[in-house]
Design a binder for these strands. Sequence first.
RNA 1: GCGGGAAUAGUGUAGUGGUUAUCACAGGGGCUUCCCAAGCCCUUAACCCGGGUUCAAAUCCCGGUUUCCGCACCA
Length: 489
Amino acid sequence: MRYVSKQGELEELMEIAKRRGFFWPSFSIYGGFSGLNDYGPLGSLLKNRVYEKWKRAFASVGGIEIDTPNLTPEVVLKASGHIDKFLDIAAECGSCKNRFKLENILSDAGYEIVPESVEEGEKLLSDHILKCPRCGARLDKVFEFHLMFKTESGSESYFLRPETAQGIFVNFKLLLNYNKGKLPLIVYQQGKGYRNEIAPRQGLIRQREFNMAEAEVFLPEEGSEVFAPSGNREAQLFDKYGKTHTMDLSQAVEKSVIKSAEHAFFMELILSFAVDVGIDETRLRFRQHRDDELAHYSSECWDLEFNMEGSWLEITGISDRGTYDLTRHMEKSGENLAYEGNQIARVIEPATGVDRVIVSILLSSMSKRDSGYNVMKLPAPMAPYRIAVLPLQKKDGLSEKAQEIFKRLRSMEPYTVYDESGTIGRRYARQDEIGTPYCITVDYETMEKNMVTIRERNSTGQIKNIDVELLFSHPDFLSNPILDQFGSQ
RNA sequence: GCGGGAAUAGUGUAGUGGUUAUCACAGGGGCUUCCCAAGCCCUUAACCCGGGUUCAAAUCCCGGUUUCCGCACCA
């Protein structure tokens, strides 16, 4: 059964996110600035959980982590090709004010020229009559459009990195040495990336500053397979010819839908990660980039996409960058970035848009009870808070007793929250909406017999008469066997 | 960036020139022997920013910002 899209779900999520503290627009007291968003207290916790899962996924196949600067010198991005590809010469129509990439206008007019400067662009506009594709007037203005944010210090120019990847490539020699000169070498990095989006929209989905998690997998030259998919997970594969294949990743390699086993292996790893963090598997597919949309560094790319309001949202790109980056950095830096003599490692890169993953998780988890109240059915380990401690009411010492239990629990499981405001039903509802999987209720039984009730979010089922000491019988609350009684709801 | 809507408490909203600026939910305090947003009382809290028109502007006009829908863009 395929997922049926729900219109308006994103809007509904934004409302919950703002109200409860997952995320909201940045700098709002100054009117807001487009393309920038803050994570609130709950969102920050969720984001940390996502990063943690992502890192574990890569560490478990031998990955190592590094952390490099956001500010990237021009020379690095010149070598990587980003300066050329991210600095567009654009033309503006004086009549309707629409703007276009000059390169595209020229190409439509039959000239295969990529202008490198404003002067060259101006000359092209005066030598040829180029018309606005919107209104037909003659194009007359040329300007530079930066897709990267530029800044300066002294005589040096820097850009805010458009991807974290370059920080890994430039360290290849040191990293290879760290890895005792051996491939495969898997290096990952999480952090911010920056793109000067022309029209940022949809909250966390298209931002000017965003969270990424990227891994560069350095492999021995083609043909020597070191990673192969297990084939334990079926996927929808929408290939570059527009054909959909439903098969596991292992079959996809056998049938040559995916070119290399290593590529398929990391697609499988990413798919497992996505499902593990709580994204609805029936709303996911892989889509292969067509040849004409591949990035300048990529020879084959599969995006993991999430179905949102009837359209597909890229959440991770798994790209075959080949030897492009290392070769370019060798040429430009003069350093020898080869391994075992003169061989160049080839690279598979899974690059995850963390903010989009978070939106996908929340949209996958958002549901309503028959009563109309919201329940965020996050996987328990992903929930911002794992436990809420609630006194049935404030009087008769219940409040004090509950706080005592809360403080002990919090020293074992820090992501525990205490709430005594309003009625008990209201508090259950509040915890449901932020996805807290378990509520511990302190009532008169607790006062008399030291027993509490545990209430589970998805089923609203309760287990009564739990001895308080049992809560502390297992150092990881979520793995406490007392929770097994809820079964797999 | 373009075109068209829109912008009022934390959230969602009412309000077409003169209102103590509406209502609900959420928040805080209290009452109710209270297990799934019950009820009652009290309370906190808002007209996006800047100009203009007018005796008077949340309301009309202009500019900006943000946002939504289309188009373009998404390397």
